[in-house]
């Protein structure tokens, strides 16, 4: 829906491959991905009306604090005080921004972040241990699990974490200008377990 093409900030930073201690049984997978991404901030007193609109359009009402509503393709991620992030399908530009902006006219502030964030998918048996080196969030399943989100700092960078699956599978949103710093810190943390790295396969 946009005339702009996304260019990965990690392009040329790392070749796809297996790195670190264990090349035969890597414990972590680090995949770069892309989604169209929009922040939604309801105006005063408009939260339930906005939630009705997003429920009707995508089947995704605005979730509670620290939670995510999702369907097979899209997610509505709580990302801060009175703010949610609508994330589109994996590597597709599938959300009609002008239509959504029109539907939320006078109800919410809507901002396109599709080219502002770098998204890392983190999974594998040692993903939680890797995260533990980067942030102070308690990611034990008793306090953080599927359809949870948190805004926190990692490597001194403000990040947004969305746990997608209990397996575990996380997606971490990082301001794109900090993507290289974050990526190198993450790879450093995963090195002792061995990790698969996969940069964005194609620019969507």
């Amino acid at each position: 829906m946009s005339e702009f093409t996304y260019t990965s900030p990690l392009a040329g930073v790392i070749k796809p491959g297996v790195y670190g201690a264990s090349k035969t049984a890597p414990g972590v997978a680090i995949l770069e991905t892309w989604r169209s991404l929009y922040s939604i901030m309801p105006r005063n007193g408009q939260q339930s009306v906005v939630s009705g609109v997003t429920r009707e359009r995508y089947g995704l009402p605005l979730p509670d604090i620290g939670r995510v509503t999702s369907n097979a393709e899209h997610s509505m991620i709580w990302s801060g005080l009175n703010q949610w992030m609508l994330a589109g399908a994996l590597n597709e530009t599938d959300i009609n921004f002008p239509e959504l902006a029109d539907a939320l006219k006078d109800m919410a502030a809507l901002v396109d972040h599709s080219h502002a964030r770098s998204i890392i998918r983190l999974s594998g048996s040692q993903a939680r241990h890797t995260l533990a080196k980067l942030c102070a969030l308690d990611t034990h399943p008793r306090s953080f699990s599927s359809n949870y989100s948190a805004a926190t700092r990692m490597a001194h960078i403000s990040t947004l974490i969305h746990q997608i699956d209990a397996a575990p599978l996380y997606e971490i949103y990082v301001p794109r200008a900090f993507a290289r710093s974050f990526f190198s810190e993450l790879c450093e943390a995963a090195a002792e377990y061995g990790y698969i790295a996969e940069p964005l396969r194609r620019d969507p």
Binding site: G80, L81, Q83, A150, A151, T152, R153, S158
Partner: peptide
């Protein structure tokens, strides 16, 4: 005792 403004800048930004 004191009342102070703080910003959760590395989190929810409240």
């Amino acid at each position: 005792p004191h009342h102070e403004y703080w910003h959760h800048v590395g989190g929810c930004r409240a």
